[in-house]
Design a protein around this nucleic acid. Structure first.
Lengths: 249, 249
DNA sequence: TCGTTAATGAATGTTTTTGATTGAAAATGG
DNA sequence: CCATTTTCAATCAAAAACATTCATTAACGA
């Protein structure tokens, strides 16, 4: 049986059952245990399922709503697709910074466990702790609307850290001015975090490209923008900007 | 049966029944007692349930029905009574520090609006922002169980501030050693916050007097303990300790 | 065709999970 | 209060599942 056929069977099984035993899959596919194990390992890497002892379990399984099942049977949503890809860049042992905001929030379910996270997003903390990920939070003023930590105290806290990678959300991306955000104080935090990271990633689903309001982050340096769709000319403009790379999952 | 299947069954059972007996689960899952015990231990660690003698009980179940009705129909609970009194001590324009923990959490609904709050309790932030109270949060390591900020970074953040009043929870009060807490790092934060405050208040409902585990906060200085019931001899012992005052609402 | 690469399944030794057993601790019922 | 029963945590050996390695087979381009 073809590899892609097996994969389809495995995914289909999980759509119905939430969990599936390895031996069941051996029977269904008429393949060896080894092969199924390899399939499961691959599918787990691609975040289609979670391996458990004795088989595999659906990622969405615990939320038993039919609407969620639909979601998983179709393609992943844009935001999730970006999130999954971004998470795949993280390696065990990494020390990473997570920006506040909903785009970055989507990242959390896909993070590997053996990392250390620093964040200025209070929204993120609960979910990070649920996942048993050691979490440090920046101090400072709690911005009411977004629950992001900002201000002088936040910058001071941030100075103490160094990161392997940082993941930033944006309120807008502008072909000439780079990625943008309307709140000057939030921008300062982003900027400093980027400068403390070896690698910087900016997550942007396409809705971000239509934003108008922005304040330029002037001295951004090396960064990778992860997005889905982008008009060719925009990409060209971004690509020619120093050290900015654009990738799509 | 797969581990994740069993876990799902256990969680599902608790969604309906509030509590479930270990033997029931043994039957449902066709697994041994030992296995179910191990499952319950794991699920308790992940905060999905609470183990009780003979089985397990839902975490949210208690909060829904019985206690809320009792609470609203009867007089204010002890904790609330203490909270209302403590909040009445705060004046407009005050700069106050709120310790992490459930006792202090009760304070928030009763706070006046025109104050500034600093806290190390992540649990508190949402409710404070709801009340439109300007809130600063200490940075540092997020302690998973209590969502309190602790560690070196927290102490550094804290140094920046000065408070008119601080309100501390305790895990136990000991007649000889003063108020106590089992976590040394949490104790350090408490201690520093107190030393940065003009006035210090310790909130303790009577359940706190029976705690055993404690680590002494050695150099506590002036403080007022707000509690409800206290045995006369204990109060005398506490009162004779330098500068500690005991009041009851 | 040949040589190279990728996929597969069998064989190996290791790790994890499991259920039975033990004595300790907690609840129960006089 | 004590005696009895139930529940519990800790330990251990067997079984199941596991990752890894290796030889075989199939697929592919030169």
């Amino acid at each position: 049986m073809l590899e892609s056929e097996r994969h389809q069977i495995i995914i289909d099984s999980l759509k119905e059952k939430h969990t599936v035993k390895l031996q069941e899959l051996v029977e269904l596919t008429q393949s060896s245990e080894s092969t199924i194990r390899r399939d499961l390992t691959q599918l787990e890497e691609k975040k289609y399922l979670k391996r458990v002892h004795g088989g595999a379990s659906s990622l969405q399984g615990k939320l038993q709503e039919p609407s969620m099942i639909e979601k998983s049977s179709k393609n992943l949503q844009t935001k999730q697709k970006i999130a999954v890809y971004a998470a795949s860049l993280i390696e065990e042992g990494d020390s990473i910074y997570l920006d506040a905001g909903s785009t970055i929030f989507e990242l959390i379910p896909h993070l590997p466990e053996k990392i250390v996270v620093v964040t200025n997003g209070l929204m993120h903390v609960d979910k990070l702790l649920e996942r048993n990920i050691p979490t440090y939070v920046l101090g400072g003023y709690a911005k009411p609307k977004t629950k992001a930590m900002i201000g002088r105290g936040t910058l001071d806290s941030l100075q103490q850290y160094r990161f392997d990678k940082c993941f930033m959300g944006v309120n807008g991306i502008h072909p000439q001015f780079g990625y943008t955000t309307p709140d000057q104080e939030e921008a300062q935090v982003k900027q400093l975090a980027i400068s403390l990271s070896r690698e910087a990633y900016v997550l942007a689903d396409d809705s971000k490209f239509s934003e108008i309001a922005f304040s330029k982050i002037s001295d951004l340096h090396t960064a990778t923008i992860i997005t889905n769709q982008i008009e060719t000319d925009t990409e060209e403009q971004l690509s020619t900007k120093t050290k900015i790379k654009v990738v799509t999952p």
